[in-house]
């Protein structure tokens, strides 16, 4: 018998079309990784092989790129969260509401202005004669300009900046959900504000922090434009490697194998982080 609740499932159909397209696209690409590279104009030829995977996993420089992508993304995510926590606290709890609104406004405008805009701006800001170095040398903090570009520092700064709105948006919800009377109880029992923050607020915030960490980490892993522009070929993350194999070496199977290895290690590391996060949450509570 047909009832609305039974019939409404068919509303999924158009999206199902898209979903099957996605499956075919990812599936076909993964399949490609098991074949040798074909002559120009074709994607692959011959019989199935694992050669592409040996090339990806066997080379030290490939391993270095993989591990630096994972490690740097993790570190950048931690820094991002450290920057985001005070912002979220102030947005939710500032006594004057306009303060919070102002920060939200700054985040919204930055967020909507896009990645290309920000990558370009950092490129100019962080140059040897850019605003940052000018400020640092003129004020006498450093003698010679710091090199930010074409190494991890500039890439890290720009990715942190890109991640910050995501982190703050997610943390706001977590801070809002804190039950303030627990903190008040701690205060009434004699804890200082700082002690209360570290001993009570942060542990209660932990699940929210972990969710944010996983979200921000997975966005960081996918970084492509920032290392491309600010890394100047010296800093390469896996996304850049895949791009190069596609468009510089025209080796689609090699690119595909790199992508598969990337995905597997990305999911494995995300899983590991969530797993450790759960352990920590258990230990704390």
């Amino acid at each position: 018998m047909a009832k609305t609740s039974d019939r409404s499932k068919y509303l999924i159909s158009p999206a199902l079309l898209i979903a099957s397209f996605i499956v075919v696209a990812y599936g076909y690409f993964a399949l490609t990784s098991f074949f040798p590279k074909g002559p120009p104009g074709t994607q692959f030829v011959g019989t199935p092989t694992l050669d592409n995977y040996w090339r990806v996993l066997g080379s030290g420089s490939n391993q270095a790129v993989l591990f630096s992508t994972l490690g740097a993304s993790f570190l950048i995510s931690l820094i991002t969260i450290a920057v985001a926590v005070p912002m979220a606290m102030v947005i939710v709890r500032a006594k004057r509401e306009w303060v919070g609104n102002l920060i939200m406004l700054a985040i919204a405008v930055t967020f909507l202005s896009g990645g290309v805009t920000r990558a370009y701006s950092w490129l100019i800001l962080l140059g040897n004669r850019g605003l940052i170095n000018l400020g640092l040398t003129n004020s006498g903090i450093v003698d010679a300009p710091i090199r930010f570009l074409y190494n991890w520092s500039g890439v890290g700064i720009s990715i942190t900046h890109y991640l910050l709105p995501f982190a703050v948006f997610t943390l706001i919800g977590a801070v809002r959900n804190l039950n303030p009377s627990v903190e008040e109880a701690a205060r009434s029992l004699g804890a200082s504000r700082t002690t209360t923050f570290w001993r009570i607020t942060m542990p209660m915030l932990l699940p929210g922090l972990m969710v944010t960490l996983v979200l921000v980490y997975s966005i960081a892993l996918a970084s492509f434009l920032f290392p491309m522009l600010l890394g100047g070929g010296k800093v390469r993350m896996i996304a850049n490697q895949i791009y190069d194999r596609m468009f510089v070496e025209y080796d689609i199977p090699y690119a595909a194998a790199t992508a598969v290895v990337f995905l597997v290690s990305a999911f494995a590391s995300i899983w590991l982080i969530s797993f450790v996060a759960k352990k920590i949450e258990k230990a704390v509570s």
Partner: peptide, 14 residues
Amino acid sequence: IIPGVVTGVSLLSL
């Protein structure tokens, strides 16, 4: 969750 580059390259290749 799948990095944009992987999605882009898969679609292009298909």
